[in-house]
């Protein structure tokens, strides 16, 4: 009994230390205890809200996208934070391009967010690599901040058709992993 009590207090204290802002464990709300599973599976890591932020994103071609509306239009949205100076990002971009072409008729929208980067470098890079999916600049960190902060690149955020952030992947994504994630979300 004592050990169980100690363990629970330990877990609650640990959660508060690890994520003091979002307080994902509230001992007064039993339903929040479900999020213990989410916490340890790191599906939605610290600093990321579970709902899509209300954000208008302007692509480098001048197109304005309202993220909430995009996700609300029966679209699965994949947001990939990247930079031309980030080698793992650069290596996974052909996977996104392939999937973008393969999934064009399956209501999946890919959005690349160039982070801490310069427009000339981004434009040169996407021309060299034949990237055709939508790219936007985040030189003021506004988009990253709206998602709760992006500390590492690449960071890929999967948003379902109900505007929920359902998965955040930090680090390189192989073609197989990306494909698997999308198939899981589409079914």
């Amino acid at each position: 009994m004592v050990a169980v009590g100690g363990f629970l207090i330990g877990i609650i204290l640990f959660a508060q230390v690890a994520n003091p802002v979002h307080k994902i464990f509230d001992p007064l709300q039993v339903k929040n205890l479900v999020s213990i599973k989410q916490f340890f599976s790191a599906k939605i890591p610290e600093g990321v809200s579970a709902k899509v932020p209300d954000l208008i994103i302007t692509t480098i071609e001048g197109e304005q996208l309202m993220l909430k509306e995009l996700a609300g239009q029966n679209q699965l949205v994949v947001v990939n934070f990247w930079a031309s100076w980030c080698s793992p990002c650069v290596e996974e971009m052909p996977h996104f391009e392939k999937i973008h072409r393969d999934y064009q008729n399956k209501n999946v929208t890919f959005l690349g967010i160039a982070t801490k980067d310069l427009l000339p470098a981004v434009e040169k890079f996407i021309a060299q690599r034949n990237i055709t999916y939508k790219i936007a600049m985040d030189d003021q960190d506004k988009i990253a901040t709206a998602f709760g902060g992006v500390k590492v690149l690449p960071t890929t955020i999967f948003i379902d058709k109900q505007n929920n952030i359902v998965k955040v992947h930090k680090g390189y994504l192989s073609q197989r992993e990306l494909d698997k994630n999308l198939k899981n979300l589409l079914h």
Binding site: L8, I9, G10, L13, F14, V17
Partner: peptide, 12 residues
């Protein structure tokens, strides 16, 4: 109980 909590916290 509190001591146990702290121990578990440190372990975690």
């Amino acid at each position: 109980t509190l001591f146990g909590g702290v121990v578990v916290l440190l372990l975690c």
